[in-house]
Design a protein around this nucleic acid. Structure first.
Lengths: 215, 215
DNA sequence: AGAGGAGAATTTGTCGTTATTTTTATAGAG
DNA sequence: CTCTATAAAAATAACGACAAATTCTCCTCT
């Protein structure tokens, strides 16, 4: 965990860094770029975050701290039923990701690189994430709410459904064209994933067969 | 399209480049890295591919040429029904991607960066890809095979399902643990997506409600 | 006055690229 | 078959640009 001095300059730097990492990639962004974008001196970044890697670590951890908190809030509802719990988790995570689309995209991308650095930073969070998902799905099968299915595969699918909209702007732009108000996107997309949960995971379910048309 | 001299050295370079781009990212890989990995001199890369970007272009286009060909082969079966056609497309694309996991991952990652370069190289192929998917889905709705649904959203989902396994090795490793023989992964995963097509897209369908359990 | 935050300059290293040279392969003439 | 002219392929060396990190200097508060 990175310990970082506080101050208004710090937040300006973080904001600029996230934006640039997002559009140009971590390796493609220089400290000078960030300094220019944030309108601060390059040496300040070293002061606040020790070095470039420290800045990235701070961005990632500060995001995932909250992300896992949201996940845990949803998970705490497991006693109200696996389906309800899973849908709540999906809603929370999606809303949070929609509030931080740049970071979400950045993480998805940098995670796919074999740099030990990002892997190490994230691995703790990812283990937790998978753990909670697995518990919910297993509980659902146990409680006869969900059909028997391959849990790791379903986790992979859920994670994919949650990640997709942030990964490829080309495809998302088409969806956003259909859902023009971005602020409603989280809600709309949440309900789409809920329909997926109904159709693929749940056993026979009232309303399961309703039309998928949203337009 | 890039015109590139032939020769055994060229293929060695391409192989090394794909491997390194995949693990370290395009910006994170230097021409010297590639040269070292391929055990050739750095200047040869410039000789063969003009410059670093030329090398990337060659990697991407040579992949996507075949990718689109496979897509078109599947699309040509549209008169045999939208469901059949879509499943065939999925099977082809997934098999092809499984044969080139590194390139698939590389493309997914670099596409998500706002570099005009990659975007420009890929845009033609992506337009074609979306066009074919859209046609198949619209045909399916028209022919009353598929339920009415949001086509752009479904394309996003299909594309996501196809991309997921290559994006995040952490999650995939769990799936591969379940399906230990990698060569069968394409088949297994294809059948999972087929089940998705049945559950989410198709109207009432015999065998639709069978268990999803694969183990 | 002194501590700590911010800017400037310097150092060191690496990047992509190019210009040039050396080696290898190919083909034609004697 | 040999020798040489010619082109292709590969290796070498070096340039200019810019990156990150470090150090030094200046400024501003209490």
């Amino acid at each position: 965990m990175v310990k970082v001095p506080r101050g208004p300059t710090r937040d300006v730097i973080v904001k600029a860094a996230i934006s640039l990492f997002n559009t140009k990639g971590y390796d493609g962004t220089s400290i000078r770029d960030i300094a220019a974008e944030a309108k601060v001196n390059a040496a300040n970044i070293a002061y606040y975050f020790r070095n470039k890697q420290g800045l990235l670590e701070y961005c990632l951890t500060s995001f995932y701290e909250i992300y896992i908190e949201e996940l845990e809030k949803g998970y705490s509802l497991l006693d109200k039923g696996a389906e309800f719990c899973l849908k709540n988790i999906v809603e929370r995570l999606l809303r949070y990701q929609c509030e931080h689309p740049q970071l979400t995209r950045l993480i998805l991308r940098e995670m796919s690189i074999d740099s030990q650095m990002v892997r190490e930073i994230m691995s703790t969070y990812l283990v937790k994430e998978r753990y909670y998902f697995r518990k919910v799905l297993e509980k659902g099968i146990e409680a006869n709410e969900f059909r028997r299915h391959s849990v790791p595969y379903s986790i992979l699918q859920i994670k994919g459904l949650l990640s997709m909209p942030f990964l490829n702007t080309q495809y998302v732009s088409e969806v956003l064209y259909v859902f023009p108000h971005e602020k409603y996107f989280a809600d709309k997309y949440t309900s789409e994933i809920h329909r997926w949960i109904n159709a693929v995971l749940c056993k026979e379910h009232n309303g399961n067969r309703e039309h998928l048309m949203l337009l």
